[in-house]
């Protein structure tokens, strides 16, 4: 599996560390208790296109990767500044 780093281009999986679903980028309001419950514990686990966060260890870039869990296609990668 290869993933696209916005700085380095396509790189091998062993250079990356997985973090989790890109939902983490969107924090609920501080007083939104059910929003925090969702944020911390519930994931959509879609069959199809999904976005998740990877860290490219050698160059220190967080990458938001769009990929397809059905076809296993890796579609694109963006910095977190672009992904937000």
């Amino acid at each position: 599996m290869r993933l696209p780093c916005p700085c380095c281009g396509w790189r091998d999986l062993r250079e990356f560390t997985y973090k989790g679903a890109a939902d983490m980028l969107h924090r609920p309001a501080l007083d939104d208790a059910s929003g925090w419950d969702d944020h911390l514990h519930n994931r959509t686990n879609p069959a199809g296109e999904t976005r998740d966060l990877w860290y490219h260890d050698p160059c220190g870039t967080w990458v938001c990767v769009t990929r397809d869990t059905v076809s296993h296609a890796v579609i694109s990668g963006a910095t977190l500044g672009e992904a937000r």
């Binding site: 380095c8 790189r11 062993r14 250079e15 260890d57 050698p58 160059c59």
Partner: peptide
């Protein structure tokens, strides 16, 4: 380029 040589950052 930044990469890894086995587990070593290079």
């Amino acid at each position: 380029a930044r990469s890894v040589m086995d587990h070593l950052p290079v």
